[in-house]
């Protein structure tokens, strides 16, 4: 494992820790899209089916279990915790799941590496992850007030895939020179979706102002 991949994983992990910290410490999930969080649960459930079929490393298994456990617990807090669920911006979080999930599934049926259940679901999870942030970005744009934890959460979540892109370039040159179009292009799309957010996040940080996205 190279340093970019590790940095990507740690950024991803840190983003989730920040989100859980916000929810648990402030007993609030304002500004967080339940739609996006539910899509991540689907992403992890469909991608990590190989937990049952092959062992890669202790690190790999542990991280997969952590991502599954934390994403499910975030959704649990937002849906069922008696205090947290009242802070959920339901009226503003209107993006439809199937609007993203169905096209991704159809695309995975059409474009995949191998036509097996595990491979198609893995491909679906890659496509879905690329666009799963959209409900969250829409919600942020509608929120007049983005708190620091939410801003940092989205920033780290975007930075993680950007670091993976660097990791893939590095792996291409240092390992087997194999081309992996499905994850590479999806990762590129995923990172590009954050471009606008990154711009306003860095600008607000430089000017020491509160983060606000233009409507």
């Amino acid at each position: 494992m190279n340093v970019f991949r590790l940095a990507g994983d740690m950024t991803h992990l840190l983003s989730i820790i920040i989100l859980l910290l916000k929810i648990r410490a402030t007993k609030s999930c304002t500004g967080i899209s339940l739609k996006t969080q539910e899509l991540y649960v689907i992403v992890f459930l469909t991608r990590y089916l190989d937990l049952f079929t092959k062992y890669i490393s202790f690190y790999n298994t542990t991280m997969k279990l952590v991502f599954l456990g934390t994403s499910i617990s975030i959704v649990w807090y937002m849906r069922y915790h008696k205090v947290v669920k009242q802070t959920y911006n339901k009226d503003q979080d209107t993006f439809r799941h199937y609007f993203l999930a169905i096209p991704c599934f159809l695309l995975a049926l059409l474009i995949h590496h191998e036509f097996t259940v595990i491979e198609v679901l893995w491909t679906f999870s890659i496509y879905l992850e690329a666009v799963a942030i959209l409900p969250q970005l829409v919600l942020l744009q509608r929120s007049r007030n983005i708190d620091n934890l939410t801003g940092n959460y989205v920033f780290l979540l975007g930075a993680y895939r950007a670091l993976y892109l660097v990791n893939w370039v590095y792996r291409y040159f240092t390992e087997n020179h194999l081309v992996r179009w499905i994850p590479w292009l999806s990762g590129l799309v995923q990172t590009t979706l954050y471009a606008d957010f990154f711009y306003y996040y860095i600008k607000s940080w430089k000017n020491n102002e509160k983060l606000q996205l233009p409507a």
Binding site: I56, M63, F67, L178, P183
Partner: peptide, 10 residues
């Protein structure tokens, strides 16, 4: 051949 070397990623 391994279907994808990125399968060891998360």
């Amino acid at each position: 051949e391994e279907p994808s070397s990125v399968k060891d990623e998360l």
